[in-house]
Every structure is written in structure tokens, then in C-alpha cells.
Simulated scan of single mutants.
Amino acid sequence: MSFFQNTCKPKGIGGKIMVNMMNTGHSSMAEWGFTHIEIRNNYICLDIGCGGGANVKKLLAKTPYGKVTGIDYSEISVIKSQKINKAEIENRRCEILQGNVMKLPFGNETFDIITAFETIYFWPDINEAFKQVYRVLKGSGTFMICNESNGENSKEEKWTKIIQGMKIYNSGQVKKSLEGAGFTDIKIHKNEKGWLCVVCKKDKDVN
């Protein structure tokens, strides 16, 4: 397995190195993404594809009276995320689970905020995955996607050849899939670095 395949599902020694790299390498992008959403101090949050847990830690700091759940389908990512969020797990403000976005193990309308950093590239079917996100998001809740690649730079397509199962989406593709899942008030943010942040809402009054 190529070392870069660990961006998809970290395994073994290479996976341990990769989750450490993710925690530091994606920090600036995550902070940029967080500027586009409001997180109240008692929100119930979910970070899908939580990787090494750095963004779970950021969410915990932003919602001091709330709770944060992280989920990832890599055992190595789960172990790392549990380690760096150990104190808040012990305080019962945090939970890290191993699971799959295609079948989220949560009840309907559980979360106020759901985030997905550098992860939708690897979701087998974003149309179905977004429906799962929509299901577990509360009415009037917010879903944020944040990617380093906005799908407009052809040079980035090399990664889809190196990393099996990876697909880079542009903002139009993401917007269409979100609309198909029922999301509204979709806002698209880009910057000079080529990063993409998409923020959307679930209507308050949904059946």
C-alpha cells in the first residue's frame, strides 16, 4: 500500500505518521473553515472523518457546555483521537467512535453542528452520505464541509490516481448533492489557496 493511501484509511506505522501529519497540516484550513459557522457554547457537535482528533478538540473548546462526537472508520484514527481528547472523554463531553458515514450510528436529529474536514473525497457515495448527515442533523442545524482541494485545479487530479477511492469535487457538484439530500441556504467560500468551504442548513420545520 502506498503511504498516501493512509489519507483514505490510516493503517499501521504509516497510518500513525499520517494522522499526526493531518493534525498539524490541516490546522490552518480548519481554523479558516470555522470562521464561516457559528458554534454556540452548548451545541451538540459531530465531526465525521475525525482523523487524529484535532478538530474534535477545537470543537470542544468552542462549545464548553456542549458535547462533541468524532467518528472515523480507521481504528488508528479512533485511537489517536481518543488519546488527544482523553480528558473530555473522561468528563463525558466527548465520544470517539469507529463507524462509517454511509450508516451513521445515531438517531434522527441528534446534532446542532456537523463538520467534515478533508474527508468527503473518500466517501463511497456522497449523495447517500449527505442523506445520512441530513438525517442526524437537527432542524435548523448546520453542516460544514471543508476541503483543501476545490476541484478547479487539474494538477490536483494526480492524487486521485495515487490514492485509490479518492474523488475531488468542485463546488457545483457538492452543492447539487447537498440540494438532493434536502439541504438549503448553501453558501460556498473559497480562498486564494484553493481551499473550499461549503456551509448549509437543514430547515427548521422538516417532517
Results as ranks from 00 to 15, higher is better:
Met1Glu: 07
Phe3Ser: 12
Gln5Lys: 02
Thr7His: 03
Cys8Asp: 05
Lys9Gln: 09
Lys11Asn: 00
Gly14Trp: 02
Gly14Ala: 02
Lys16Gln: 10
Met18Glu: 10
Val19Asp: 04
Met21Trp: 13
His26Tyr: 10
Ser28Ala: 13
Gly33Met: 12
Thr35Gln: 10
Ile37Val: 15
Ile37Trp: 13
Ile37Gly: 09
Asn42Thr: 07
Leu46Ile: 03
Lys57Glu: 13
Lys58Leu: 14
Lys58His: 03
Leu59Asp: 00
Leu59Tyr: 04
Lys62Asp: 04
Gly66Leu: 04
Gly66Pro: 11
Thr69Ala: 05
Thr69Gln: 10
Thr69Ile: 08
Asp72Arg: 03
Ser74Glu: 01
Glu75Thr: 09
Ser77Gly: 02
Ile79Lys: 09
Lys83Ala: 01
Ile84Tyr: 11
Glu90Ser: 03
Glu90Met: 05
Cys94Asn: 02
Leu97Phe: 10
Gln98Met: 09
Gly99Pro: 04
Asn100Arg: 06
Val101Trp: 00
Met102His: 12
Phe106Gln: 01
Asn108Ser: 09
Glu109Lys: 06
Thr110Glu: 14
Glu118Val: 10
Glu118Cys: 09
Pro124Gln: 04
Asp125Tyr: 08
Asn127Val: 12
Phe130Gly: 08
Gln132Phe: 03
Val133Ser: 05
Arg135Leu: 07
Thr142Arg: 03
Met144Ala: 11
Ile145Cys: 12
Glu152Tyr: 10
Glu152Pro: 05
Lys155Trp: 07
Glu156Cys: 05
Lys158Gln: 12
Lys158Arg: 15
Trp159Ala: 07
Thr160Asn: 05
Lys161Ile: 12
Ile163Glu: 07
Ile163Gly: 12
Gln164Arg: 15
Gly165Val: 06
Gln173Asn: 01
Gln173Pro: 06
Lys175Gly: 05
Lys175Cys: 10
Leu178Gln: 08
Gly180Thr: 12
Thr184Cys: 13
Ile186Phe: 14
Ile186Trp: 15
Lys190Gln: 08
Asn191Thr: 14
Glu192Val: 14
Leu196Thr: 06
Cys197Tyr: 08
Cys197Gln: 08
Cys197Leu: 13
Lys204Ile: 11
Asp205Leu: 14
Val206Glu: 14
Val206Tyr: 14
